[in-house]
Design a protein around this nucleic acid. Structure first.
Lengths: 340, 340
DNA sequence: TATCAACACGAAATCGTTTTCGAAAGCTGG
DNA sequence: CCAGCTTTCGAAAACGATTTCGTGTTGATA
């Protein structure tokens, strides 16, 4: 009952012509007579012939696959980026191979080496925290040295020369902080992660810039650096209790959501007593109670742009040695965790 | 500056041996003298030789890729499944190609045909709503007839013979409804989607079974069928206003989250005046305010099992014509949207 | 009738591997 | 000294497609 895939060779044997003739006939080559072409095309359609992708890849040295390497997929932002990449890639006939580094340097290296051996035509990736911590980018450099195009997004590094797509994280934090200041907030806290994450660092910068610009004295104790990507409720609780902040900016959604719960449990009214703004405008921001004012990172757009840049590089013949960094503007989405 | 990938041919030429000798030497074949092997292996290591995946795929007729086709990736449940698949697949040396059907029949067909031409060794998929609506599964049948293993998860169909992994949706709804009845709820509503979605149908069945079993008279007007997968706030609002329910079970998170907001806006107290239970234990359930009691679908486990079943089929030589359906037990996670 | 272009097709190389089957050497033993 | 064995290696086919470069046949032309 198995209908195995048919090949050019089968058709050739059956119709008593050569393989080359079949190949040309199916491409409607002028070389082949109308008669023969019709015969071959009819036969091919009847047996539902489809060329083998692998054979074509080997011949063309083109796989029409692009590798997307991200730290985690159960993460709204990365998910939207993947969707953006997939959408654009699909319109250009590319498939997307997703690899998860799980925030681990080793896994990132292994995955990339695996894919780099012919499986993909280019990479789109966001650095794992492990890699940013180690500060070792040799696996990326090797890939680019082999002539495999690479686009870094969001979590990037200056150590590697390649195309990059980011949002202006500093500007996002600046906008948010400015908004809070304008609403009369005096003690604005920041909950972030370690500075080795490129985005956290940029956001901290933007936050400090706004404070300085508007003459709000910056106090060191208003910045909480979470030791890991995981939530630590106790730390946030202590921070809110002890720091006497009247507004908090966080580098992701979760910290804000959790912070709001803690604040409410402490009897604080949001946004009257304390305001919150979080990065990453995901589902949580939209559906939290109160809904969370947040800084949209436009993940899907970022994915589309990354894919566009990558495919452009893949398909351009010349080895252009010019790389660009696209910086998207973040958007402040106002909801009920700040004063309207 | 380009260090192009080196091939067996290059090594052979450089060392003045044949390609076959190089190939064997790198596999540590007994046929080759120790001397020659050491020379070749040293050279290969020096130039960082790695075999070309595509060539090996062509030779072995094995790609070590598995295709995952899902309706949407910006959806917590599917995302967790992908992660589960990826994790297991990775341990077995497989890569994951993710394709999004976008809930469309056509895209599902196109994507599968593309991948089926040699790009992957097997499929893991969940049906798009478009496909379930059309009730046309010829693209799946073609794939299985070609001998390509297929595992369906969550949104499945009886029309296709293949391995399947689902949770006991009826049981999940039954457990939830039972819990609500035990807590003294009298008018328990259900917000679902159309019955052509296999899971919605099963959940409705479980809901009705519990009502019947505990002698709660079922009223037709307590079931709200949403016309699409999208949220329609007005419908939910009207439903809560008019139906006088004191508990609501929904087939996803969003409907519950939104329902809770509407209820609170109407001045109802959760869970005192009205309880909520939703399917899919995702981030929203955990971080909603109040947090949402929900039925965990164990997506990651589902992905792992799917991958395990698929890879087992891929790697087993015999054409076993026996298929199994694994049914996972859902778990009720109690939170603050129901009485403790 | 010899020449040449146009037409229709096939042989063979190629992509990078793996693997089967020989086939040269060198060695042993009778 | 030679049959026969081991050791060590290479030629070639194969996976499935594309493409270059023939080559044989026809018909038209000088």
């Amino acid at each position: 009952m198995l209908k195995k895939k048919i090949t050019l060779k089968h058709i050739a044997r059956e119709l008593e012509v050569s393989i080359s003739t079949v190949s040309k006939a199916l491409k409607n080559s002028e070389e082949i007579s109308r008669e023969t072409k019709e015969k071959i095309q009819a036969f091919a359609k009847l047996y539902n012939y489809k060329p083998n992708n692998i054979a074509i890849s080997l011949k063309n040295k083109r796989t029409k696959n692009i590798g997307v390497v991200i730290p985690d997929i159960v993460h709204h932002f990365f998910t939207t980026v993947v969707r953006g990449v997939e959408k654009y890639a699909n319109t250009k006939g590319y498939n997307v191979i997703v690899c998860l580094s799980d925030e681990s340097f080793d896994k990132e290296v292994i995955n990339m080496e695996l894919l780099a051996n012919g499986s993909i035509d280019g990479f789109i990736m966001s650095l794992s925290s492990g890699t940013q911590k180690e500060n070792d980018y040799n696996h990326l450099k090797e890939v680019t040295e082999q002539g495999i195009p690479l686009v870094l997004f969001d979590r990037i590094t200056n150590e590697v020369e390649c195309d990059k797509v980011i949002i202006d994280d500093a500007m996002g934090a600046y906008l948010a902080t400015k908004k809070l200041i304008e609403q009369g907030r005096k003690r604005i806290g920041l909950i972030t992660t370690h500075d080795y994450l490129s985005v956290s660092k940029a956001r901290t910068t933007g936050y400090q810039k706004a404070l300085k610009e508007f003459g709000v004295s910056e106090q060191q104790d208003l910045i909480l650096k979470m030791p890991s990507m995981e939530m630590d409720g106790q730390l946030i609780e202590n921070f809110i209790k002890n720091s006497k902040v009247d507004a908090i900016l966080t580098v992701n959604e979760i910290f804000s959501i959790y912070g709001m719960q803690v604040a409410q449990d402490l009897g604080l009214k949001i946004p009257d007593d304390i305001s919150f703004i979080g990065f990453t405008d995901g589902l949580l921001s939209k559906y939290a109670n109160p809904s969370l004012t947040s800084i949209a990172q436009h993940g899907e757009r970022m994915g589309e742009i990354s894919a566009e840049m990558l495919i452009q590089k893949i398909e351009s013949e010349e080895e252009e040695e010019t790389y660009q960094t696209k910086i998207l503007e973040p958007t402040l989405i106002e909801r009920n965790s700040t004063i309207n």
